[in-house]
Design a protein around this nucleic acid. Structure first.
Lengths: 142, 142
DNA sequence: GTTGCTGCAAAGTGTTTGCACCCTG
DNA sequence: CAGGGTGCAAACACTTTGCAGCAAC
């Protein structure tokens, strides 16, 4: 069973004279199986179940690799640690973060994007990326 | 010369059984004089000019105090350190960050805010705050 | 004179790096 | 069998904390 994500990783690895290892496979599989928006530490715990001897440093190094190969995307919700989300076949979106329960709702709004471009153009600014985070209380916590 | 910001700090301090000190006054003054979006380290260097014996920890502690008393607002642009902006009489705005020169342009767009509320309502989510950061290249770096 | 504040150094947190050994290609 | 990958521990950058002495009220 080779997932399409594994193929992407294979491609990236062979194109860059790198090597596929059982640790990298384990990290990728755990990353794909787990909920979105994992931290390195959380992923480390998950991978450890399958690959007990793995080191935290390897998880960090593999997450960097996944980010470079576009399989993962780095996020920073301002809680002091980076989080990673699935990127493959996963188009751009923004986040609502419930400050009570930590729930994350993804959304996009075409008009928000449009007005971002507008205000950028007004300032002669060329957007390469953006982050929009709404913090608040979700329906379940109200 | 007592600035309105100093009065706010005084109020907060007396209301909470705290004490005003020359270090706190020095940090506040340096914070008000310096450009917006300072990091703790930067502010520490500035304050050190006037108050050479001050410790970095005091700057951190005073920044926490300023944040609590609403004089400062904590920001995280994802570069690994917190930054602080003037908050007093300074209404909400978002940020464009030039990834070449670090320049920060502040902006607001009423329609963006409006559509944020709309998409939140659609998800039964109550917004308490938000962060919108546009990353890209400013006019001077193009 | 209490009680909070300071400076210092030590401890913390999340992440990165150096190194000797291991394993993939 | 060469060169990259791994685990471990140490190093890192930023921030917080413990403590003894100090200063504001």
């Amino acid at each position: 069973m080779v997932s399409k994500e594994m193929e992407v990783l294979q491609d990236y690895i062979t194109q860059n004279n790198l090597k596929i290892t059982k640790q990298r496979r384990a990290v990728l599989n755990a990353f794909l199986e787990c909920e979105n928006h994992v931290s390195a530490e959380e992923l480390y715990k998950l991978v450890s179940e399958k690959e007990p001897k793995i080191g935290l440093a390897t998880v960090y190094r593999t997450l960097a690799l996944l980010t470079q190969s576009q399989l993962a995307h780095e996020l920073d919700f301002g809680d002091g640690q980076k989080r990673y989300e699935h990127q493959f076949m996963h188009s751009h979106h923004d986040h609502m973060i419930c400050t009570e329960c930590g729930k994350i709702i993804e959304f996009t709004h075409p008009l928000i994007e449009k007005f971002q471009e507008e205000v950028a153009a007004r300032n002669s600014f060329t957007i390469t990326s953006h982050k929009l985070h709404l913090f608040g209380i979700c329906s379940g916590c109200r």
